[in-house]
């Protein structure tokens, strides 16, 4: 029965895919397809159809590989999971629809075929969705790593003075990474003063403040001084409202002011050169 079903679908793949496309276009006025070219819709639809036939005839291992390939492709195209789910449901619909029209299904065999098709499509849908979500998780993981890599590098500005600009939300994991980069950078560049610039940090709550205080404490232990710069008015307000004590810190509103103080600490200053 598997083989009959497979060959039936293979022979009628084109009309089935036609009606599938029609179903998809009816979904939310075809907005799914507007973003893709016709060629791409055709080739992806065919691939999906072949994948489904494949699952009827080939062994599991080979099938698992194909499903993964396909789901990676879908994720790359940026298809959402709800779109993939709809596509799968509509594909089942299209098969039933076509079978009914051609009379392949009749009163005698319909029970068996419906069971067969259900047994075939349900795990298939599951494995596609699973493979898809795995791919998605991997993408998220990679993005997270990329974010960590680009965040928090220590920039030596002058002899003995470095700056670390912080951008984005700080969670515990990032805070640990920031602290490591900060300390290793301070020791490597022999910085006596390091300016932690929080201009790009959207929210400073008790936890973020706690991490910053810890980082500054650790900087003091390795033998340097940590200054907090880039404190915007709203950040100053939240810090005081939350009762966070930053009194042990040198803090300034802008990086520029901080830099002036850092130079003063290291017994230097910027002077204008008079024109000759």
């Amino acid at each position: 029965m598997n083989v009959t079903l497979a060959s039936y679908i293979r022979e009628n793949l084109n009309p089935i895919l036609e009606s599938w496309k029609q179903f998809m276009e009816e979904e939310e006025e075809g907005k799914f397809f507007q973003i893709m070219s016709d060629d791409m819709i055709d080739s992806t639809a065919h691939e999906l159809g072949e994948l489904m036939i494949f699952s009827l005839t080939e062994n599991n291992q080979e099938f698992a590989r194909k499903v993964e390939e396909f789901s990676v492709k879908m994720a790359r195209h940026g298809w959402s999971i709800s779109f993939v789910m709809k596509a799968l449901t509509n594909f089942t619909e299209a098969i039933y629809h076509h079978m009914g029209q051609t009379g392949f299904l009749n009163d005698n065999n319909s029970g068996n075929y419906i069971r067969l098709i259900n047994n075939w499509l349900t795990p298939l849908n599951h494995s596609i969705v699973e493979a898809y979500s795995k791919t998605w998780e991997r993408t998220v993981q990679l993005q997270k790593m990329a974010l960590q890599e680009l965040s928090a590098s220590l920039i030596p500005v002058f002899d003995k003075i470095s700056v670390m600009p912080l951008v984005g939300t700080i969670d515990t994991e990032r805070a640990k990474l920031i602290m490591e980069n900060l300390l290793q950078g301070v020791v490597k560049h022999r910085s006596e003063v390091v300016l932690l610039d929080i201009t790009g940090v959207p929210v400073v709550d008790t936890m973020v403040a706690h991490h910053i205080i810890q980082a500054a404490d650790a900087v003091r232990l390795v033998g340097a001084k940590c200054m907090l710069v880039g404190i915007r008015p709203e950040i100053a307000q939240t810090i005081v409202a939350l009762g966070i004590n930053l009194n042990d810190f040198t803090t300034t509103s802008t990086l520029q002011r901080g830099m002036e103080q850092a130079l003063a600490i290291t017994n230097r200053q910027i002077v204008e050169v008079e024109e000759q």
């Binding site: 301070v186 810890q214 650790a218 390795v222």
Partner: peptide, 15 residues
Amino acid sequence: VITGIQPAVAITLIE
């Protein structure tokens, strides 16, 4: 004056 505290040591102490 204490000198040369390594980053790893400083982090562990703080934690």
